[in-house]
Design a protein around this nucleic acid. Structure first.
Lengths: 138, 138
DNA sequence: TTAAATAAGATATTATTAATCATATTAGTA
DNA sequence: TACTAATATGATTAATAATATCTTATTTAA
């Protein structure tokens, strides 16, 4: 029960983008080097973020990536959803799962509330806030 | 980011034990069959619970397993810790991880709080409460 | 002594995560 | 136009973790 590395890479990348001057394209290779991330894998991660609409990419010289949303509305919960998909602590909390006892099951209720608590915490701070912080853990 | 199946098996098993008459040894094979769980794998799971002190086992005829703690103090958080180890949403929150920026990193702080929220939710209800509920999801 | 039960360790299988490779596409610039 | 710097994409591999099984051992009551 933990974030995937890819989610962490995405979070770090987005903080870099928030810190960059608004609108400028940031070189993905530079981010990979700065944080010592596998370059190709980071590219793949960026593509996922792009498809989710969180960043914009541009190929060719002077290309790169930049934020496609406001740092004031972007939250870690959004990144988690983009990279790992909708949170489901247990299969019975997934969208397409059918269980007859769903509405009675006490365990499911606890997990449901736990999920809500997770998403609430991960939605409290925006990336604008996070980027103000001193540093980001390696 | 989800519970492992093994954790779910453990939760179900413990609810069975809470529901059983106090003190009697419950047959592990019966639990496996009732919930349609892989028997050997469940045995392994039970061993983990036993080493963590949550259940007692007894071999031989009339053997089986039973609760070794009070249902009033047992929580899902305890089961999670027993099966999956101490919760660490990110390596930087693990016990032996060293990061210079630990105390300044804003992301780490968010994850730290999220973890605390998870453990709080998973500690709200006891197994005594859970076992009272109608049914447990398959 | 036998049958019923868990213990334990080795191994196999499967799924997921992580990373890389090769190639294609795009766009600025000389 | 040709070159170079950038991301895009799909295939593939590697590594890790989760899940499950197999085999053999041990325990205990009858």
């Amino acid at each position: 029960m933990q974030l995937t590395r890819q989610t962490e890479y995405a979070i770090r990348t987005l903080i870099e983008l928030v810190r960059a001057p608004e609108g400028v394209m940031v070189n993905s290779k530079a981010i990979a080097e700065k944080h010592n991330l596998p370059e190709k894998f980071l590219n793949k991660t960026i593509q996922i973020l792009a498809r989710a609409g969180l960043v914009e990419t541009r190929r060719g010289m002077q290309g790169g990536i930049r934020l496609a949303v406001s740092p004031d509305s972007l939250k870690i919960a959004d990144v988690l959803a983009a990279i790992e998909g909708k949170l489901a602590l247990n299969p019975c909390l997934g969208g397409d799962y059918h269980c007859e006892n769903q509405y009675l099951c006490p365990v499911r209720k606890v997990l449901q509330r736990t999920q809500e608590a997770i998403l609430a915490e991960l939605s409290k701070e925006t990336f604008a806030d996070l980027a103000k912080g001193e540093v980001t853990c390696e």
